[in-house]
């Protein structure tokens, strides 16, 4: 059963087409990625979903059209967007406080999750005292405690160094297996998309349209060795070929 459903969504900024024609769906407990080149308008799609921008086409959640007041999504921006002046504990309660929860109650809800997110002992630290990976885990904790229907992850590991990013991808895959969040991930990292997703939508360069929908049949937990790894590599090669295919580049050139 699909929860989020987009049909023929378009968006233009002052005559410049950013999203040409986007139709996609995300099912309950499904991890879906949108993969595309930089500047393809991936983040614009999230702006439409969170109501920051308005476009054409149909967007619905659980069968009801999306409007500005429906709060279905917990959004995790590209950089961690932690507030430097709030301690980690108070950063993670931010979404609950905005929802109107009392600070004490919000802290009580969040505090038990610190161990699972590898942040135990850092509750009273300021973000500047944490490493990039820990900051990103804190940002994810802030996102998931909002208990919204669905997570929107906008290149969450884009700003991390390669080693930390790989470690974070493994950690996120493991977390996702435990929690089965319904999640939509934006990324331009092919390996990341294949490693984390159940399905991948491949986007063209701007104006963005979906050029391919790819199911990732790899078993979970996702491993880094054996047959599965070979399958993953083949899939990655296939996707890279789609993205870098000269014909598709020519087609989008003016």
């Amino acid at each position: 059963m699909s929860r989020l459903e987009l049909r023929h969504v378009r968006k233009a900024f002052g005559g410049l087409d950013v999203l040409a024609d986007i139709s996609l769906s995300v099912g309950a407990g499904e991890f879906v990625s949108i993969l595309g080149p930089s500047g393809a308008g991936k983040s614009t799609l999230f702006q439409l979903l969170t109501g920051a921008e308005h476009g054409e086409g149909e967007m619905s959640f659980d069968g009801a059209p999306l409007d500005d007041h429906g709060r279905h999504f917990a959004f995790m921006p590209q950089r961690d967007a932690l507030m430097p002046w709030r301690r980690i504990l108070d950063n993670t309660t931010l979404g609950l406080e905005v929802q109107g929860m009392r600070r004490q109650a919000a802290r009580a809800r969040v505090a038990p999750l610190f161990a699972e997110f590898g942040l135990a002992g850092f509750e009273r630290h300021f973000p500047a005292q944490l490493s990039g990976g820990m900051r990103q885990r804190a940002a994810l904790l802030r996102t998931v405690v909002q208990q919204r229907d669905m997570l929107l992850l906008d290149e969450p590991f884009g700003a991390l160094d390669a080693l930390t990013r790989t470690a974070m991808q493994r950690w996120l895959e493991q977390m996702w297996r435990h929690h089965r969040w319904t999640a939509l991930l934006i990324t331009h990292d092919v390996r990341e998309a294949v490693f984390l997703s159940d399905r991948i939508y491949v986007l063209s360069a701007r104006p963005a349209r979906i050029v391919r929908e790819i199911k990732v049949p790899l078993p979970r937990p996702r491993s880094l060795g054996g047959d599965a790894a070979r399958q993953a590599s083949a899939l990655e090669a296939e996707i890279l070929d789609i993205i870098l295919n000269p014909q598709s580049i020519q087609r989008t050139r003016p």
């Binding site: 969170t50 920051a52 709060r71 917990a74 959004f75 950089r79 967007a81 507030m83 002046w85 909002q146």
Partner: peptide, 28 residues
């Protein structure tokens, strides 16, 4: 930071809330 504003809007915060939670401390 633009992303803090975008995130707060997605959380459902209004302009006044965003001012108090993000813009005012950012100005310190």
């Amino acid at each position: 930071e633009a992303e803090i504003g975008q995130m707060l809007r997605a959380m459902g915060a209004g302009r006044w809330r965003i001012f108090l939670l993000a813009r005012l401390p950012s100005a310190l």
